[in-house]
Design a protein around this nucleic acid. Structure first.
Length: 206
DNA sequence: CGTTGGATTGGCT
DNA sequence: GCCAATCCAACGC
């Protein structure tokens, strides 16, 4: 049996993105490369985006770029940004609703040598700690936009071990200009593989 | 059709 | 901490 467990199914993703996002922490992203090699990483940081959310790509409606965000839950939305980076999202909510969860960081589990090659760095902490880094480490690009994660093919998400609610930290999202009031960034408290540690509030140990 | 700026990263001051 | 890299979707004319 696979150490990541069975793949998450459609109903898991068919919930509001702010509900799916924290529930994705501790799950295992599994990538099957064309060569047959399997890469795996444990999700430690996510962000939720919704249609009624000025920070979301879907906020201005369904366009060629955001079309996948409006498809059935469980699909992969890959977007290109800053002229050089790809980032991955899991589509959530009802079919026809433009919501998704951005996968921001993960802890490398399997295939680290290949991830190092794809990323061009040997530092384990820098392999998957950031949305564009994660996509690059798993060899995900434009051609994977629209993939169905529920049909266990090139990419899927294993059940793994969900993180207890009291160990999840919620903060505002990173890199956005609008919608900064929504605390929809979720991370595993104290985990060393997140993209950025949350601002210290005085008593939390690091 | 021209302009603008982005759900980022890595290198340099 | 600051900023260039480098493409292209979205929007305005």
């Amino acid at each position: 049996m696979s150490p990541s467990g069975r793949a998450l199914t459609r109903p898991f993703f068919a919930r509001p993105s702010p509900v799916v996002a924290p529930d994705l922490l501790g799950r295992v992203l599994v990538r099957r490369l064309p060569s047959g090699e399997r890469l795996a990483a444990r999700i430690v940081e996510t962000e939720a985006y919704q249609e009624d959310d000025p920070a979301s790509h879907s906020y201005r409606g369904r366009t060629a770029r955001t079309d996948v965000m409006f498809r059935a839950p469980g699909h992969l939305y890959v977007y290109f940004t800053y002229g050089m980076h790809f980032c991955m999202n899991v589509v959530t909510g009802d079919d026809g609703e433009g919501s998704a969860v951005l996968l921001r960081a993960a802890e490398p589990l399997d295939g680290l040598q290949t991830m190092r090659r794809l990323r061009g760095t040997g530092d384990e902490r820098l392999l998957c700690s950031g949305p564009a880094r994660l996509a690059q480490a798993l060899g995900i690009g434009r051609e994977h936009n629209g993939l169905d994660l529920v049909r266990r093919g090139e990419l899927w998400i294993g059940q793994g071990a969900p993180v207890a609610t009291d160990r999840i930290v919620a903060t505002t999202r990173i890199g956005i200009r609008h919608g900064t009031d929504r605390p929809w960034r979720f991370l595993v408290g104290g985990d060393g593989f997140v993209s950025r540690a949350p601002a210290a509030t005085g008593s939390r140990r690091s």
